[in-house]
Structure formats: structure tokens, C-alpha cells
Amino acid sequence: MIATLLTPRFLRNALPALSLTVLLLAIFYLQPRAMSYFGLNLLLNLALPIAFATIAQMCIITVNDLDLGVGAYVGLVAAIGATWLNETPLLGAAALLGCIAVYAALGALIHLRNLPSIVVTLGMSFVWLGLALLVLPTPGGKVPDWIRAIMTLKTPFLPFTIYAAIGVGVIVHFGLMRSSYGVVLRGAGGNPRSVSRAGWSLLRTKVTMFALAGFFGMLSGLSLIGLTTSADANIALRYTLLSIAGVILGGGEFVGGRISPIGAVIGAMTLTLAASFLSFLRLPPDWQIGAQGGILILVLAFRAVINRAEARR
């Protein structure tokens, strides 16, 4: 029994959950009062938007690309959400759908012209930011009540964020890991040639994954303004790097279609907690980002050790 628990593969799969648990225990040890409804809510408040952004990034990474514009995109969604969606809901909804369509088109462009996604999405980050500034030149706006209502939902036993995060993880897990087309989508990241030899369109897989990324990026922006109550074009620029870190922390690999939706959600929560953890250690908040980087390096180091142990077997 112990032997199976210590196999490299099991360890690698358990690593994200393990790191989250260790971090959570450390926080509870340092600050027992965090172990309450209110405490958890405070700790994990911002985990949901980051989780959505991480899932968006994961969709792109599945097909061996990278999105360096997701942070700016979330900012644009936030801007639209706090203005048009509130004032003229129809226009707002149409604009958000348009954003997803642009994402899908990016996937097609990258596939057809065989472009490096890093540069294309980097260019798009300028475009998203510019659009956000056009929609909302100065921070502010008003968030539609229904979004606010959802995000401040009082749920029994555990805060809404936790239920929502689990829900997202499970739904995406079923979509990508269990559904029959999800297999093809992941296969397109693992061995594109084999998937296209089996008669599937690689263009379609890429467009699907980019559109999904646009969709989850949208959810990230909307859930974010539900918490902050106002928007700012620059509100989520950090999310680009956080989302990549979240995917990797969650056990996803950079290439080859090896992803884990539930892991990605856990990774996002770990990053959120890492920030809170410091304040309990009475370390200055300056080290917030550093702690996130440190945890990322630590987990990657663990993974390297596990992989090396596996290679030796």
C-alpha cells in the first residue's frame, strides 16, 4: 500500500493537493482564527477570479500555446462589465460575445499561419488594454447588481468561493478529461500528427480551445468586479503571470497536452493563499509575489526530483 502511494506518478499527481494542504495547515497553525467561515472567506476571497483565469490559460496551454494577454483581457471584461453590461445589458453581452469570437479568431490565425502564440497574445495584450481604456478611461463604473449578488452569496458551511471553485474544477474536468471530444482536444496537444491522421481537424481543436479560454477569461473578469464592485483597466495585469504559475503548480505541463483542471484550480488557490500566508507570518506584504514565486520554484523542484527518480527506475 505504502509502496503504491510512493510511486513517482502518484506523488506527481498528489503534489498540487499536497502543497495546498501544507499551506492551509501552516496558516491554521499560525492563526487558528482563520479556521472559520469568515476567515476562509477572507483568505480565499480572490481565489475565484484567479481560478477562472488559470483555467483560461490552461485551455491555451493544452494545445501547446501560451497566452500573455489574459491579464489585460480580464481587465477589458471587467471594464465592459462595470459599464455597458450595467447600463445597456444587451450591448454589454454582445461585446463580451465579440471578445470570445476574437479569441477564437486568434486561435485560427495562430494555427493557419503557424505563428508563435507568445508574440500574438503579447500584441493582443496591448489591444485589450487599449480597448479597456476606451471603455473605461478612469477607474470606476458600476457593477450590475446580479453579479454582485452572486459573488456575495451567503452559502452554508463554507464560503461561496470554495463551492464555486470546486464546481468550476469539476465541470471543466468533465468537459476536458471525461468527455469524448475533450480527449481529442487533449490529444491535439499530445500528438497533433496522430490526431490529424485519425481524421480530426486541428484547426477546430485550436479554435475551440481559444474560444474556451475567452469564455473563462470572461468569467474571471466578471467574478472579479463582483468582488471589487468597481473596475479598472489595469485591474488584472498580474493575472497573466499568475495564471501560468497556477497551471504549472496544478500539475500541468508546458507542452504535450498534459493538464489537470482540478489541479489548476488548486494551483490558483495555492497562489492566493501564499499571499495571505505571509501576513500571518508577519512578513511584510512586499514578499507576496516572492512567496508565490518561491512556492512555484519549490513545487517545480519537487517535481524535478520525482521525475528523476522515475527516470532511474
Binding site: 490565425l109 499561419r113 505563428l115 508563435p116 508574440v119 500574438v120 503579447l122 500584441g123 493582443m124 495584450s125 496591448f126 489591444v127 485589450w128 488594454l129 487599449g130 480597448l131 479597456a132 481604456l133 476606451l134 478611461p137
Partner: peptide, 18 residues
């Protein structure tokens, strides 16, 4: 404004690479 400037910059990068 700043918005248009950023959009132009982004579109130019994408056009160049395309």
C-alpha cells in the same frame, strides 16, 4: 487617447508577425 495608441501598437505587432 491612450486607448487608441495601445490598440494600434498591438495591432501593428500582430500584423508584423503575421
Amino acid at each position: 487617447g491612450a486607448g487608441i495608441r495601445l490598440i494600434m501598437t498591438g495591432l501593428i505587432i500582430i500584423s508584423v508577425i503575421t
